[in-house]
């Protein structure tokens, strides 16, 4: 296998950093985060700017991802777009399962909640769109991780936070769990983020079969589990919704 090309690796790293939560970074910030001299980073930025992958914001003099990158093929999917395509399916999942439904996307090493449908019991609930969840302790996150191994390799470098006694904090164990997720096509979190809370998720894929998000139902263990495993009827509902949304995403964008 030929050796990886360093400059492309670095360019990719710049774009990864700019796709992070900050969205805009200065030359100083970028070179600090990459551990490289300013001159080197500036050279990379200038080239990326020339091909339209990076833009410089004239007011703040900070760098951001360029429009050319956003429209590059079908791999980029706006979270708001995903919500608008998934709206009816997410509603119907909430109605069938009688549980909370959320849709998440990968964002800066975490799950960004892009859509949330209340549990249909008219209890007091607050919209969670925009909140960030840990990847390793949620079904939404595990469904995303199983399909995006490169994110996993970044994660295992850091410490996996423990939220409950059930949280998987060992990288090897997590890797094995994700293999199982990939094999069976759905993920679960059984009391791994909050004691007694369970969620079940399935991946949403686009036309190029890339996983662009995941959809999950969440609720108390008493309702979602049977002999401590997710109820098979609920798993089926979640997977059917994910498939329906994926099918819609395969259509020509409007």
């Amino acid at each position: 296998m030929p050796r990886p090309i360093q400059s492309i690796q670095r360019a990719a790293q710049v774009m990864h950093l700019l796709s992070g939560r900050a969205r805009r970074l200065s030359l100083v910030e970028l070179s600090a985060q990459m551990g490289l001299p300013k001159g080197t980073v500036f050279g990379i930025l200038r080239t990326l700017q020339q091909v339209g992958f990076v833009e410089k914001d004239p007011d703040s003099a900070k760098y951001q991802l360029g429009a050319a990158l956003l429209h590059l093929g079908s791999t980029y999917l706006d979270g708001n777009e995903l919500r608008s395509r998934a709206l009816n399916w997410a509603d119907s999942l909430a109605a069938r399962s009688n549980e909370t439904v959320r849709i998440g996307t990968l964002h800066d090493g975490r799950v960004l909640v892009v859509h949330h449908v209340f549990r249909p019991d008219d209890s007091y609930q607050v919209l969670q769109v925009g909140s960030l969840l840990p990847l390793h302790a949620t079904a939404l996150g595990k469904a995303l991780l199983a399909a995006n191994p490169y994110v996993l390799s970044e994660l295992v470098g850091e410490e996996l936070t423990r939220f409950t006694p059930c949280t998987i904090t060992d990288a090897k164990q997590l890797g094995a769990a994700l293999k199982e997720v990939k094999r069976r096509g759905w993920a679960a979190d059984i009391g791994e983020l909050v004691d007694g809370e369970v969620s079940v998720a399935a991946p949403i894929t686009d036309r190029s079969e890339r996983t662009v998000g995941s959809i999950a139902i969440s609720g108390p263990m008493e309702r979602l589990c049977e002999s401590e495993l997710p109820r098979s009827d609920l798993v089926a509902y979640v997977r059917e919704s994910a498939r329906a949304i994926s099918r819609d995403l395969g259509a020509i964008p409007w």
Partner: peptide
């Protein structure tokens, strides 16, 4: 924008 949903972004 390239789709209606993108206006929110």
């Amino acid at each position: 924008i390239s789709s209606a949903a993108e206006i929110e972004t």
